[in-house]
Design a protein around this nucleic acid. Structure first.
Lengths: 349, 349
DNA sequence: GTGAAAGCGCTAACAT
DNA sequence: ATGTTAGCGCTTTCAC
């Protein structure tokens, strides 16, 4: 645990000033090439390592970006993280990641930690039960850029990166209608969360535009877990008449739903066509392969960090563009490709 | 962008010394309860936030743990991260996460960044092509605890957290034999990586112990990707005689392999029984459900951070226990449950 | 129980 | 192109 080498040590060794050493190490243009080389040589030879804290303390900048995510171990979120890390790393930023585990309390605590650690910016996908953004107030008032992605708060006009969930859900539902479905159920998530709320909206609009009645019974609200899929399927099996189309707000739940329905002897897509959401890897493993909405997680992560860094670098001088909407698209697979007989007459009587 | 409040401001406000404020804020016992309360009140009222850098600079400790992981977006690794984050967060540590993207170069760069950021400890799962640990030398020589998990370096006696891959693979292979398989193929990963190397070993030992010949042709080496599974399946389909059992070193690859084999008309498990590794969620979605080795990712993450923190707190005074081996176990599912006729006579002639 | 003084290692002004 | 000075905000002796 030998003593740490500092720029003073290097300065003394080379009989120059610490300032010059600092400049040299940071590739300041006003340092003679020769001197710079000497500095680098001495540094590596003496085993010097920069002290980020001293530097941060002085510069009041940390080169660190905080991320608060509901949970890390989901296919979607881990893709987002991967995209974020890649861009951040390339730009020389560190990523401090923390999970809210879907609770506001932890989200509040994490926000405070991030604030105290003086992250240069913060990226957040909010928890299920986050109903306001009070705990981010310190960031707003200190002018620390805060960017929400995917799960974003309502009302507040925060900067956010999203996909058009209404449109995506509308497309998915319309697709079911086009396949001949006339009795469609939507399995939704927590309606306090913007993404699920919007998907329900898109679902509703699509029904309306196709003159299919929307009733309370058209929606099953769940937590979209695997178990929820099983329960929802059981509930659906008790319906009479049975629906002929199901739009589920995420793939995970859709898949377990399919498994349960299949076990009950339902043929998919012929008896019921099903659409999921996310384009998780599992959609191409379940039989039949699941039609879903492709949802660009990795890209969302890249865009989020890139926007934040652009802002920090002063590139986007005005307040950041308010909302960035990424493209999403329907991926049609077997779970909705009805066979011949499915070519029903149009529902418009 | 108002000025930051410091302990000096609080001190002035309360007409006491900064020292006392510092002590108060840190719950130092030698501060009158009354004074402490006044300090906390003033702090929150004035909008004070601690400056972690100044503190770190002074204390030479960062309360930060670095993690270098091959990639974040894998089911296994994201579970590990989730476990790590949970324990770290509870203990008041921050996690700086970076990906090596399976290349030594990035791993080297990341290690340097972690070093310069003076993480209190480092957790690493090494990249495919990492052949030595030279780039971690600075950590060793500075006495910064470094803990490898899952993918650990060979030879070097570093502290590591693993499962017994040899045993797990042995169990998996033996299971195939018990199901009546006599011609078994192993689809392996990069053999430079300990986990795949060990799984191959376990496979080999199991064959030997059951008097099944092991030849070069018994192993197909791949990168274990989805595409690799398809290619491996195609290769297997050309074999004559066809094997009746396959042990694949990860689930992802096993699943795409199954899909390809099924398309070719192979019946699983009756024609070929298949075992995977990891117990990813997909194993319960593929049909037939995949027999696999349950691999405790989340737990591994928890244990890794907990061990590191124990060490940092001086709890485990001696050098850390050298290797922590977590339990892993075979989960039998349909992909290896041969139907009646599979009750072949024992191979021992 | 509280305070004064010094310094962690770096960099930004301001010289020269 | 290089040096001098000062200070970022905190904690830690040491003193009272």
């Amino acid at each position: 645990m030998d003593k740490e080498i500092t720029i003073y040590d290097i300065a003394r060794e080379l009989s120059i000033s610490p300032t010059t050493v600092s400049r040299g190490l940071n590739n300041h243009p006003a340092v003679k090439k020769d001197t710079r080389q000497k500095i680098f040589d001495a540094a590596s030879q003496m085993g010097y390592r920069t002290n980020a804290f001293a530097s941060n303390l002085r510069k009041k900048r940390t080169n660190t970006i905080g991320v608060i995510v509901p949970r890390l171990n989901s296919s979607f979120q881990s893709s987002v993280m991967a995209g974020m890390e890649k861009v951040a790393n390339e730009a020389g930023y560190n990523l401090i990641i923390s999970q809210s585990l879907e609770t506001v309390q932890k989200e509040i605590a994490n926000a405070k930690t991030m604030f105290d650690n003086r992250v240069d910016g913060l990226l957040v996908s909010i928890a299920y039960d986050t109903e306001n953004t009070d705990h981010f107030e310190p960031f707003f008032s200190k002018g620390i850029p805060l960017l929400f992605y995917d799960r974003v708060p309502e009302h507040k006009n925060c900067t956010s990166i999203v996909i058009d969930n209404i449109k995506a859900a509308y497309t998915a539902t319309t697709h079911l209608v086009e396949q001949g479905c006339t009795n469609i159920i939507h399995i939704s998530g927590n309606l306090k969360v913007n993404v699920y709320k919007d998907r329900l909206k898109g679902f509703k609009y699509a029904l309306m535009d196709n003159d299919i009645p929307f009733t309370k019974a058209s929606v099953i609200t769940t937590d979209l877990s695997e178990e929820a899929g099983i329960k929802a399927a059981q509930q659906i099996l008790k319906m009479s008449p049975l629906p002929d189309g199901i739009f589920v707000s995420n793939d995970n739940c859709a898949v377990s739903c399919i498994k349960t329905l299949k076990q009950a002897g339902i043929s998919i897509p012929d008896d019921m066509a099903i659409v999921g959401f996310n384009n998780d890897p599992i959609t191409r493993i379940i039989e039949p392969n699941l039609t879903t909405i492709d949802y660009p997680g990795y890209e969302m992560g890249e865009v989020a960090v890139r926007s934040l860094i652009n802002y920090l670098d002063g590139a986007s001088d005005v307040t950041i563009t308010n909302t960035i909407t990424l493209r999403s698209e329907l991926v049609v697979r077997e779970s909705t490709r009805k066979t011949a007989k499915a070519e029903k007459p149009s529902i418009a009587s």
